[in-house]
């Protein structure tokens, strides 16, 4: 029989909490950044200008083609070099957290841009036409008319993507960051009681992601009702 000693979890709660704070911080920054730049990317991809449309498409395709974990690795090793190339200084990196943030924003922008592009395309052409006919410029038509409607339609899919993003934040262990999972792993190695800690981590992830999916389901049901 497996003897479980939950005291080890309680003893490590401060450490685990610190890890959770890092996870949540990374999640929030990546979510906001991903949606912001994802929106710009989506707009570029729908542009009538080749010079905006093609490069943004290449970028999105390229990012989606590489494994997430590789992007995190690359930025960890590349950003010190890039920063060094600009400042002329060697070694002084921006650190694993900010390099991870950049990687996350980049990757999430690509994923969100696909969702947002579909959302923008779901709005009938007459809507931007009406906005332009009233004298609005591109940014006013997008900001006041097209995007608010598009985001409302996309909310369930965006939340689903957000759940995936939250789970993906645990990937930062590869660059030595102590997120929630990383903190549990460290505590487990020190104490030798890995099972309890990983069980606890799994439970917390389960609760968070499950409740978020419930919210998504509710939203979807409400929107289906609203449509009829």
């Amino acid at each position: 029989m497996l003897e479980l000693d939950w005291n080890i979890v309680i003893k490590n709660l401060p450490l685990l909490w610190k890890g959770m704070v890092l996870s949540l911080k990374l999640f929030a920054i990546a979510l906001v950044g991903g949606i912001f730049f994802g929106t710009l990317l989506a707009m570029a991809r729908l542009s009538s200008w080749w010079i905006l449309r093609k490069p943004s498409q290449w970028l999105v395709d390229a990012i989606r083609a590489i494994p997430f974990i590789m992007a995190i690795f690359w930025f960890y090793f590349l950003t010190p070099k890039i920063v060094g190339a600009f400042t002329g200084e060697q070694g002084e990196a921006i650190g694993p957290f900010w390099s991870a943030v950049i990687a996350f924003i980049l990757v999430e922008s690509a994923y969100f841009s696909e969702i947002i592009r579909a959302g923008i395309q779901s709005i009938p052409r007459g809507q931007p036409w009406a906005a332009y006919a009233l004298g609005m410029n591109y940014w006013q038509a997008m900001g006041n008319v097209v995007l608010p409607q598009a985001f409302r339609n996309m909310l369930p899919i965006m939340l689903t993507q957000a759940i995936i993003l939250f789970q993906d934040t645990s990937l930062v262990y590869v660059v030595g960051l102590k997120d929630f999972l990383g903190a549990a792993s460290t505590a487990g190695q020190i104490s030798g009681r890995v099972v309890e800690l990983y069980l606890f981590v799994a439970l917390v992830y389960l609760v968070i992601c499950f409740s978020l999916s419930r919210v998504v389901k509710r939203l979807q049901e409400r929107m289906d009702v609203g449509r009829t």
């Binding site: 009938p124 007459g126 809507q127 036409w129 009406a130 906005a131 332009y132 006919a133 009233l134 004298g135 006041n144 008319v145 409607q149």
Partner: peptide, 15 residues
């Protein structure tokens, strides 16, 4: 455009 009004077949009010 702001000086020329336009009315569409499908109304195109902002829903």
């Amino acid at each position: 455009r702001s000086r020329v009004g336009m009315v569409f077949q499908n109304f195109e009010l902002f829903p």
